[in-house]
Amino acid sequence: MSKQITAKTITDSEFFYGHKACAGCGGSLAVRIALKVLGEGAISVLPAGCMSAVGFNYPHLCFSNNSIISTFAGTASMLTGVEAGARAVGIKNFKAVGLAGDGGTADIGIQALSGAIDRNDDILYICYDNEAYMNTGIQKSGLTPFGAKTTTTPSGENIHGNIRPKKNLFEIVAAHNIPYAATASIGDLKDFMNKIEKASKIKGTTYIHVVAPCPIGWGIPVNETIEISRKMIDCGLWYLAEYENGQFKLNRTPRKFSSIKDYLLSQGRFKHLEDADIKILAAQRDAKWTTIRKNWNTTEEEL
């Protein structure tokens, strides 16, 4: 185990500052913390999405490291180019890092991401997952969970929000036999920071999937972003895990889940759910945890 990054040891410098994200935005916290860990050598690529929209408003430019907007689909391919270009001109101590939303990653950007992993390009791809296309007004993405109400999955008498389960992107990425992939949450920044640090030291493609709630899209008060992230882990609808050397490992093993109903009904996007819907979600959760407990390494250790 290497030395842990903490609030005390992390740099005082800020690389994402003065941005126009809504108050309490989880995505902006994920981006801020990722860049603080990576430092000024980070060259960041952000596709269309909230974090590019709130970070680049010429002449108001909120990144103090080199940063660029990519096409919506092209985060990973631009990272490939940035990494090769920086290396070709002899830049030392840099890290090409992607900061892309769930829509930009799990849907339109998945082909470019898959290609980059296949080539094992030396890049770090971070997906901040707010579970919908927020920047265009809350449309369903492949990472929107079952039951969530979005503008394209409304809830009515017959259909109660999104009818499809959340895509399992972490395992889709891992299935490429990537050198390192991890899940994280802005509810546990210590875990997130140390996963970024670990990923940044690994040569080859690395991927971190960080849940980062959006108070607007989730229908929660702006001061509850962290609390809801923690509830999501505690009730078992998210898990902190790593994939390395062909093995899955769980970083935190809950003995008992907290109330899934409490997690769901404290958010506007799930308010319409009935007990039968919540049962479906709980059953999906339990099935997932059964396979996790059976197949993954579940001994908790420090990163």
Binding site: G24, C25, T225
Partner: peptide
């Protein structure tokens, strides 16, 4: 650590807030 806007900063004697950029979300209070 948890301020999404990074406006709380360390000083010699403790912490201070850059009110030019604080949005008042209340995450720090929670």
């Amino acid at each position: 650590l948890y301020c999404p806007d990074g406006v709380i900063f360390k000083t010699k004697s403790g912490l201070d807030i850059d009110y030019d950029f604080c949005k008042g979300c209340g995450i720090c209070e929670k």
